[in-house]
């Protein structure tokens, strides 16, 4: 399939998703009068209405020019689809791309209503609502959308594509969003192609911090390992980010250990020095790798970078 056709199809699919999102905004009934014309692809006309991830109906009157992004993932997406110029403020964890750090900073976890309102945004993006923040902002006349709460991080790369499409639609960068998704999809396809024929990948342990928190299959990070057909040793845990018992890690004998806590001082050497870890396969075969925690856990454009890096760690013989 040629890349151009693929892109076209993706764009159509994207619009379909958005149309569905708009259609179900009033409980799955008929499309509302606010619904934008969906017939022709890549056409955005304001006012438009979307349904955010917590089911709130959000109407955007005109192309947003003063966006406050209180979500690191949304920030990365906005800059990646060319909407960076429309962003005037970000939260303090929005550290990528470099340009984002030049914007005014807000706090996403302990948000201050006054501080947010004070910068005069015309669209506020949250990934987490600590308690009726969205409603409070709406009461002040500030359009606000919640795009994935802490509990409902997009669990798959497809969900990231949806978010990219949605943000492209809201900011009138549907074309760039489509291109970005197509490029990401190509790269995911390439990884999957390289893994063709793999039934069961290596056993992995993904270390979130030195107290042995890890990412279970039911998390965004876990979803990346699912694409890679890895056997996550945290399978069976009932939370997305469980703290594993040390003896369980030794017993389940990971073949590859991925450290997302390199910034906290952990390294292949510190792992090798842990008592009782000496006979773990990953330690014996020296397959301990460090990965950027933001890249791997943030449901944004760079998750494909993380996917490719992990693929190389897990399948060095298949990827150069």
């Amino acid at each position: 399939m040629s890349s151009l056709v693929q892109r076209g199809l993706l764009l159509l699919a994207l619009v379909g998703v958005l149309a569905a999102a708009v259609a179900c905004e009033d409980g799955g009934g008929e499309p509302t009068p606010h619904a934008p014309p969906m017939g022709s692809a890549a056409e955005v006309s304001y006012p438009l209405t979307i349904v955010d991830t917590v089911g709130r109906e959000v109407t955007i009157g005109a192309q947003p020019q003063r966006i406050a992004s209180l979500s690191p993932a949304a920030t990365e997406i906005l800059f990646a689809i060319g909407a960076g110029d429309q962003v005037i403020a970000v939260d303090m964890f929005s550290n990528y791309p470099e340009e984002a750090t030049t914007r005014q900073q807000l706090d996403a976890y302990e948000p201050n209503l006054e501080a947010i309102a004070g910068i005069g945004p015309d669209l506020v993006l949250l990934f987490y609502d600590p308690g009726e923040l969205a409603d409070s902002l709406e009461r002040l006349g500030i359009t606000t959308a919640v795009l994935g709460s802490v509990e409902e991080t997009p669990e798959s790369v497809e969900a990231v594509f949806d978010q990219i499409g949605l943000l492209g639609f809201m900011t009138d960068h549907l074309q760039e969003a489509g291109d970005l998704v197509a490029e990401m999809q190509d790269r995911v396809d390439a990884v999957e192609e390289a893994l063709a024929g793999v039934e069961q990948g290596p056993r992995i342990f993904h270390e979130v911090d030195a107290t042995l928190y890890t990412a279970a299959p039911d998390s965004f990070v876990g979803g990346l390992y699912k694409i890679l057909k890895a056997q996550n040793i945290a399978a069976g845990a009932d939370q997305p980010f469980p703290q594993l018992s040390q003896e369980v890690i030794i017993e389940r004998d990971p073949e590859v250990i991925i450290l997302a806590d390199g910034a906290y001082g952990e390294s292949p050497d510190t792992v090798k020095a842990r008592p009782g870890w000496g006979n773990i396969s990953a330690v014996r075969s020296d397959r301990i790798f460090v990965i950027d925690p933001d890249m791997v856990s943030r449901p944004g454009p760079r998750c494909v970078d993380a996917l490719e890096a992990l693929a190389e760690y897990l399948y060095p013989e298949r990827l150069e």
Binding site: F93, Y109, E110, V208, D209, A210, T211, L212, Y213, F241, Q243, S245, Q246, Y264, R274, P275, G276
Partner: peptide, 25 residues
């Protein structure tokens, strides 16, 4: 903790106590 919410899990785990990382040393 609130100002470094990315490490809230690590902090909370320490504050609530545990022996997961015990070793002879």
């Amino acid at each position: 903790m609130i100002n470094h919410s990315q490490r809230v899990h690590t902090t909370l785990t320490w504050l609530l106590g545990g022996f997961n990382l015990s070793e002879w040393s």
